[in-house]
């Protein structure tokens, strides 16, 4: 049935079953349609940039996928199988990890406790194995941020970049297959932004599918294989980054105008208006 919909012309070069397929997702809050019949998909080893203004519904859409929100309508398929995602635990079971814009760290506990939050390592006695967790944290943090030393401090005491490293470490440590990054570089300096870009490429090479969410096209365009643009809760359209220019994508974001290289969605401006 996925073939019949055929709503993704750009995906023809990446064959096989999509890793994630979100179909006709809708959610409203108090009568406001935050996400309105949006369909997007993601293939293994692919980076899909999810773009749009603040308030376009990007974060809300991915929060449905990560289990933070419950959708009103629509279906999610993982590997072509219908997925039941009702809470963050369900999402993690499907190998979906999320780096939230707010980082979603418990400020009062240390890096290892945050890294393993909800999935603590335990000893044979069922107690927390803090030493093993610290060891694992040291290893993964060393790869991401070799200068990181503050393993005993609550993450409150860390810099923006260090906190970001902790959030990223948490997403990649548990063998994720799908990673959602919500404005991952918002709090970072140029060097750290570059590190995140390199990490994204590395993860992509490992066959992980990545949703990269941003309101800034420059963060995303060079990294993404495809972009999906949202406006007012609706999908303006999707496009392969090789088929469109940055300016055209900007037009999608700002005006909702779908260029030739893109596949228009329900939120696209009617073509006569665009002309």
């Amino acid at each position: 049935m996925a073939e019949n919909l055929g709503h993704e012309p750009g995906s023809s070069t990446i064959s096989g079953t999509p890793l994630v397929e979100m179909r006709d997702m809708s959610i409203s809050f108090g009568g406001i349609k935050a996400v309105d019949h949006v369909s997007v998909d993601l293939y293994p080893g692919e980076v899909v940039g999810l773009l749009g203004h603040n308030g376009a519904g990007k974060s809300t859409l991915i929060k449905i996928l990560s289990g933070a929100y419950r959708r009103d309508a629509g279906e999610i398929f993982i590997d072509g199988q219908k997925a039941d995602i009702h809470n963050p635990r369900d999402a993690k079971r499907y190998g979906i990890e999320t780096i939230y814009q707010t980082l979603a760290l418990a400020d009062n506990v240390d890096a290892a406790a945050n890294l393993f939050l909800g999935r603590e390592l335990r000893t044979a006695w069922g107690t927390l194995d803090d030493v093993a967790m610290e060891a694992a944290a040291r290893e993964v943090m060393h790869r991401l941020n070799p200068n990181f030393k503050k393993f005993k401090d609550p993450v409150r005491a860390l810099s923006g970049g260090q906190r970001q490293s902790v959030a990223i470490a948490r997403a990649i440590y548990f063998n994720a297959r799908i990673i959602i990054m919500d404005e991952p570089t918002a709090a970072l300096g140029p060097q750290e932004t570059q590190q995140v870009a390199e990490l994204t490429k590395k993860l992509k090479d490992e066959g992980i599918g990545i949703f990269l969410i941003s309101h800034d096209i420059h963060d995303v365009f060079d990294l993404a294989d495809r972009v999906a643009v949202m406006k007012n809760g609706q999908l303006v359209g999707t496009a392969r980054t090789s088929d469109v220019t940055k300016d055209e994508v900007l037009g999608m974001i700002i005006l909702g105008k779908c260029p030739k290289g893109a596949k228009p969605g329900p939120g696209a401006m009617a073509s006569e208006e665009a002309a």
Partner: peptide
């Protein structure tokens, strides 16, 4: 651990699956 994580950031704890 969850008690303290909830106190530090309830939303983060919930998003982490607590």
């Amino acid at each position: 651990r969850y008690v303290f994580a909830i106190g530090g950031n309830p939303e983060a704890a919930a998003l982490a699956g607590v």
